[in-house]
């Protein structure tokens, strides 16, 4: 018999631990041309802000060694169009829907989160307090424990139904302090990590390659950093608080995902790999299942935090 791969995240029952990473899978229809979304544990949307955002000037993305740096700038259709044009299709796909929420003020986070919380078919909200590529908001909310308490606490008051997830940035001195603040303010799960702040320079032109000057590094290059942060947060804060971690950063294979589970994650997100192969997330889910079977596990939960140290 195959091992059980379903996991629970707050009130979200996932048929496997794999979800898309925000900003790498649009609003779902693009990927549905390559596989049925219900093959995933959950689908995470592109970040939604109150008003439409066009995004940054181009170039917005550049490949680097074992990764890429992007500065898209939270380009999105805005709350109203998402609710009217994107969500109705997405909620029919038979997969839990997690909407990534961004804002430049606490009021905006609260307004977007409460509107989504009241909409049919939104199972989770992932607060993006970690986008490194916009001038206002985003990252500035994610870099101090006080700001995290303020924004997560305010959203917590407004959200009644959806599971509240907080996505953290690695661009901090101590991510465990940020994780603690988010949990104490009411986060039911933590996603870590967002991209690492980075800069790509063209020596010939002596200019930055990206119009935004800097951007966020993702892909296989950041996997060891992400694993360490998941490990630290799990051991120092999340395990004791009973708050599940969603691990993300450089995952391409089932084995990569298993490493995150061993470090303490309950679920994982696949991001940059989807650009390389649109089917990457479903392949990762299949890879986890085959790992469990080959290694004699009966339930994926046996892996969580199971790293053998010493």
């Amino acid at each position: 018999m195959s091992a059980a791969v379903n996991v629970t995240l707050g009130r979200i029952a996932m048929r496997n631990p794999v979800m898309t990473a925000s900003g790498t899978s649009g609003y779902g229809q693009e990927l549905a041309e390559f596989f049925e979304l219900k093959a995933l544990g959950a689908f995470v949307t592109k970040a939604i802000t109150r008003a439409e955002r066009l995004g940054n000037e181009t170039p917005r993305l550049v490949e680097t060694r074992a990764g890429m740096v992007n500065a898209i700038g939270l380009a999105n259709v805005g709350l109203e169009v998402f609710l009217k044009d994107k969500l109705p299709w997405l909620r029919e796909q038979g997969v839990p829907v997690i909407v990534n929420v961004a804002g430049s003020t606490i009021d905006e986070y609260v307004a977007v989160a409460s509107a989504l919380d009241g909409a049919e078919g939104v199972d989770g909200l992932e607060l993006n307090i970690s986008c490194p590529n916009v001038k206002a908001g985003g990252l500035e909310f994610g870099r101090s424990d006080k700001a995290i308490r303020d924004v997560v606490g305010a959203v917590r008051q407004a959200v009644k139904r959806a599971t509240l997830i907080v996505k953290l940035t690695p661009n901090v001195t101590d991510i465990t302090a940020m994780a603690r603040a988010a949990i104490e303010a009411g986060a039911e799960a933590l996603t870590l990590i967002n991209t690492l702040s980075g800069l790509v320079i063209n020596a010939r032109t002596r200019r930055p390659v990206l119009a935004n000057v800097f951007g966020g590094l993702s892909g296989p290059a950041i996997k060891p950093v992400a694993l360490k942060m998941v490990y630290d947060v799990y051991r120092t804060v999340a395990r004791e608080a009973g708050v599940p971690i969603i691990g993300v950063g450089g995952i391409q294979t089932g084995a990569d995902a298993v490493e995150f589970l061993l470090a303490g994650a309950t679920a994982v997100q696949v991001g940059t790999a989807t650009f390389v192969d649109p089917r990457a997330s479903v392949d990762v889910a299949a890879g986890i299942a085959s790992y469990l079977d080959e290694n004699g596990f009966e339930n994926v939960s046996e892996l969580i935090g199971g790293l053998r140290v010493g």
Partner: peptide, 16 residues
């Protein structure tokens, strides 16, 4: 022509 991350409309890098 443009710099593409995904070519399937999800990375939003090839905006003109």
């Amino acid at each position: 022509e443009n710099y593409m991350g995904c070519a399937i409309g999800v990375c939003l890098s090839c905006a003109v």
